[in-house]
Computed example of a mutant assay.
Amino acid sequence: MLVSVDSGKGSRTIAVKPVNVKGMTMQLNCQGEGTISIAIEPISEEQEGPCMANDVNFMSETGHDPEERTIRSVVVKAPPNVRWTLTIGRYWP
């Protein structure tokens, strides 16, 4: 497990001990009203999706790269009323 946040709310930057990966999986559950986005830095791959009032949404992305890349932080952008959980792990094909 590279990143695990059980009770995020609103926007937040999560520092990660620098780690090299060839691929990763992301799971982001959100509840509230508005749009939520997540970016892996310095890779700068951003995912965005809506959160609906009284509904739990799920986004997942699995990737595999031929070259290792270093992850240093994760940036979640969301309105203050949006609650979320996040898990990022290594992708093992």
Rank of each mutant, 00 (worst) to 15 (best):
P79A: 13
P66M: 05
V5S: 08
K17P: 10
S73G: 13
C30P: 05
E33M: 02
R83W: 00
N81H: 10
G32L: 00
R12D: 09
I40Q: 01
I71G: 07
M1L: 06
V16S: 15
N57W: 03
I38A: 04
T70C: 14
P93Y: 02
N57D: 15
R90V: 06
G89Y: 00
R83A: 11
M59Y: 03
M59R: 03
T25S: 10
P42T: 14
E33L: 06
S60F: 08
A15K: 06
I43V: 15
E41I: 03
P80W: 02
K22G: 05
V74Y: 00
A39L: 09
T62S: 13
A78G: 07
N20L: 14
D65P: 09
K77Y: 09
N81C: 06
S60Y: 04
E61H: 05
C30G: 14
G23T: 03
E41A: 13
G49T: 09
Q47T: 09
T25E: 03
N20W: 06
T85V: 11
I71Q: 01
P66A: 08
M52A: 15
R12T: 11
V74E: 04
V56C: 13
G63I: 10
K17N: 12
G32E: 05
G63F: 04
M26R: 02
S7P: 05
E68C: 11
W92Y: 13
N54C: 14
G63M: 07
E33T: 12
I71T: 12
E41D: 15
L2V: 09
T87Y: 02
P18A: 08
A15P: 15
L28N: 06
V82N: 05
W92A: 03
R69H: 12
L28V: 14
P18G: 14
P79Q: 04
E33Q: 12
I71D: 07
K77C: 12
G49N: 08
T85A: 14
G8Q: 03
D55A: 14
A53W: 04
R69L: 09
E68W: 14
P50N: 13
R12N: 13
G23Y: 00
S11L: 02
E68H: 11
V21S: 11
I40S: 02
A39C: 10
V16P: 10
G63W: 01
H64V: 07
E48F: 08
L2W: 00
M24T: 07
T35D: 15
F58S: 15
A78I: 01
S44N: 13
E33A: 10
W84L: 10
I36D: 10
T62W: 04
G63T: 15
V82Q: 01
S44T: 09
R83Y: 03
A53V: 12
V75E: 11
G8M: 01
A78K: 00
V16K: 01
C51P: 10
Q47H: 05
L2M: 01
